[in-house]
Amino acid sequence: MKIIVASTSLIARPLASALKHNQNHELVGIVTSQDKAVGRGLSVTSNPLAVWAKEEEIEVFKPENMDDFELLITKSKVDLIITISYGQIITPRLLSLPKFGWLNVHFSVLPKFRGAAPVQRAILSGDKTTGVSVFKLDQGLDTGAVYKVLEVPLNVDATTEDVLIELSELGAGLAVETLSMISNGLLPTPQSKVGVSYAAKFNKADGQISWDSPSEHIYNTYRALHKNPGVWTMLGELRLKIEKLKPTIVNETLKCGEVLIDTERLIVGTASGAIEILNLTPAGRVSMTASEFIRGLSNRTDLYLG
């Protein structure tokens, strides 16, 4: 089977590697985004997935639009396309072109958490499990019939990045198993209409910590969002980006958002329990430890975060 992987993320590496070394199928290449001008010098740069693929001697395609993508499918006579963190709407015309259609590797147990941010939503919700689904792509939002699904425990300290690494490896294996199902003429199972939920993308405002929440929820917010879009709070008019925090226990009774400086520890009260901030970046400055931040404070009393 001739296969293209469509993705803009390094999450696709395990899948592309598995297909590259699979004796039964041919990886035609990876479809990804156009090069972009980045940095102060606005130098035109390929995304990390494209750079990796070139190093692995995997063909990389960067169609400018869906017409270019259609031409690629037609010329390469591809049998199947697998999307994973691709982020583009596929037209009905393109969906109909490959012999076996399109698959998507989605990081939830569908129909739960359809949409762009399933892992982040699972962590933020305090879920105990997550998973991977491989389904046949259709015109809906992650609504296609499912070939393979795997549910796994969600570690209480795992971040979004930790979970994505694990699920990308598991998803690669499930996708290869799905290819065998398709080759043997097995059909996918329609998704249940019960338990449908959606995982909308987060924005920067979602990363502001609500100190009147329980410490467990704040920790989940950090685990889910600290890399993207980032977790932050305000000390007066100073914005603080939180790089690392953890739940902690203190003897004092703290109000929500109240700051306790315990020697070189930066502790904040919540609705239930407390949070210790370990690393942070004040606006306009470099990343620093809590102790470094404390040493730079002119006032260490009556401080509140919000």
Rank of each mutant, 00 (worst) to 15 (best):
Asn47Glu: 13
Val132Glu: 05
Gly87Pro: 08
Ile82Thr: 08
Ser125Gln: 09
Asp79Pro: 09
Asn104Tyr: 02
Lys54Trp: 05
Glu59Trp: 03
Gly131Gln: 05
Phe100Asn: 12
Asp138Lys: 06
Thr45Tyr: 13
Leu80Pro: 00
Glu70Gln: 14
Ile84Gln: 11
Thr129His: 08
Leu137Gly: 04
Ser133Leu: 06
Val132Met: 07
Ser46Val: 00
Asp67Leu: 11
Leu110Trp: 08
Lys75Cys: 04
Lys62Tyr: 00
Val78Ile: 14
Pro63Asp: 10
Lys62Phe: 00
Gly115Trp: 02
Lys128Tyr: 01
Val44Ser: 14
Lys99Trp: 01
Lys62Arg: 15
Pro111Val: 05
Ser76Arg: 13
Lys112Trp: 01
Phe135Ser: 00
Pro92Thr: 05
Glu55Asn: 13
Ile90Val: 13
Asp67Asn: 12
Leu94Gly: 02
Leu71Met: 13
Thr45Glu: 15
Thr91Arg: 01
Gln120Ile: 06
Gly126Asp: 06
Ile81Ala: 05
Asp67Gly: 04
Leu49His: 14
Val146Cys: 14
Leu71Gln: 15
Ser46Asn: 14
Asn65Thr: 05
Val78Leu: 10
Ile89His: 07
Ala145Met: 10
Trp102Ser: 00
Lys128Phe: 02
Gln88Gly: 02
Asn47Gly: 15
Leu141Glu: 12
Gln88Glu: 11
Thr83Val: 13
Lys112Cys: 02
Ser85Asp: 11
Ile82Asp: 03
Phe107His: 12
Thr45Gly: 10
Ile123Ala: 02
Ile89Ala: 09
Glu59Ala: 14
Val51Thr: 15
Asp142Val: 03
Ala50Gly: 13
Gln120Arg: 07
Val132Cys: 06
Ala117Gln: 03
Leu110Val: 06
Lys99Thr: 10
Tyr86Pro: 00
Pro111Ser: 07
Ala53Asn: 12
Ile58Asp: 09
Ile84Tyr: 09
Val134Cys: 05
Gly126Asn: 05
Leu103Thr: 05
Ala53Asp: 12
Trp102Cys: 01
Pro48Trp: 14
Asp67Lys: 13
Glu59Leu: 10
Ala116Lys: 09
Ala116His: 08
Ile73Glu: 02
